[in-house]
Amino acid sequence: MTILERLFASSGTEVIIPTLEITCDAWSEPILLCNGYEDQTCITEDARTLTFVASGIQVALPKRDTSGTQSLRFAIDNVTGQAQSLIDQALEAEEIIRMTFRHYVSSDLSAPAENPLKFVIRDGAMEGSVLQINATFFDMINVAWPRNFYTPEFAPGLKYL
């Protein structure tokens, strides 16, 4: 039984802390948020030490159907408007926005309690002081086919055609 399964089954003094790391090539630094009232300094799976800013985060799981999309809807309290302005900046630069969702346990912030989930943000909208984000697990639409590009560097014989 994992620590998260134990916490879901019977609570105690430990608390599950969900965190979001939102990154984009157009930004100088990522947006780091955690659910709760206190900022959390955590160590990621690749040994980076990050300080997540306290915020209100809600996650709506996808409906179970045969549509083939696996999108989650995140609601983030965004009183200052910083996240909305950064997402608008990334959309104008036509850059991909990536998001990593991690769970930590309050007694052990040295590593995520389970493997992180990685998303690609599809769109975002501001509703009042809340930022609504739609994110997908796998970006099927932007996958190139065929996956290997046949260039002279990959296949040297092409330069003679």
Rank of each mutant, 00 (worst) to 15 (best):
M1N: 09
M1F: 05
M1V: 13
T2N: 10
T2C: 06
T2M: 03
T2D: 13
T2Y: 01
L4H: 05
E5G: 04
R6H: 10
R6P: 05
L7C: 07
A9Y: 09
S10Q: 12
S10W: 00
S11I: 01
G12K: 12
G12A: 07
T13M: 14
E14H: 09
V15D: 04
I16P: 07
P18F: 03
P18M: 07
P18I: 10
T19E: 03
T23G: 00
T23R: 10
C24K: 05
C24P: 12
D25W: 02
D25A: 15
D25I: 09
A26V: 04
S28V: 11
S28F: 04
E29M: 12
E29P: 01
P30W: 00
I31R: 12
L32Y: 08
L33T: 01
C34F: 03
N35R: 15
Y37M: 05
D39N: 15
Q40M: 15
T41K: 13
C42N: 01
C42V: 06
I43R: 15
T44F: 07
D46G: 05
A47I: 01
A47K: 11
L50N: 10
T51P: 05
F52C: 06
V53L: 09
A54C: 02
S55F: 01
G56I: 05
V59D: 07
A60P: 01
A60K: 14
D65V: 02
D65Y: 00
T66L: 14
G68I: 03
T69D: 14
L72G: 04
L72H: 13
R73A: 02
R73V: 05
F74T: 10
A75Y: 13
D77E: 12
D77F: 02
D77R: 11
N78Y: 10
V79K: 13
T80D: 14
S85Q: 13
S85L: 08
L86H: 04
A90D: 14
L91V: 03
E92W: 03
R98S: 08
T100Q: 09
T100H: 02
T100M: 06
R102A: 04
R102S: 11
R102C: 06
V105S: 07
V105L: 08
V105P: 05
S106N: 13
S106M: 12
S106W: 11
S107G: 00
L109E: 07
S110G: 12
A111C: 07
P112D: 02
E114P: 08
N115G: 07
N115M: 09
N115T: 09
P116S: 01
L117T: 09
V120T: 11
R122D: 14
R122Y: 02
R122P: 02
D123K: 15
M126Q: 15
E127N: 10
E127W: 00
G128D: 10
V130Y: 01
L131N: 01
Q132Y: 01
Q132H: 04
A135L: 07
F138Y: 09
D139Y: 03
M140S: 04
M140H: 14
M140D: 12
M140P: 00
I141R: 12
N142E: 13
A144V: 14
A144Y: 03
A144Q: 15
W145A: 13
N148E: 12
N148H: 08
N148D: 13
F149V: 06
Y150W: 10
Y150R: 11
A155V: 04
A155E: 08
P156M: 00
G157A: 06
L158P: 06
K159P: 05
Y160W: 13
Y160R: 12
L161H: 10
L161K: 15
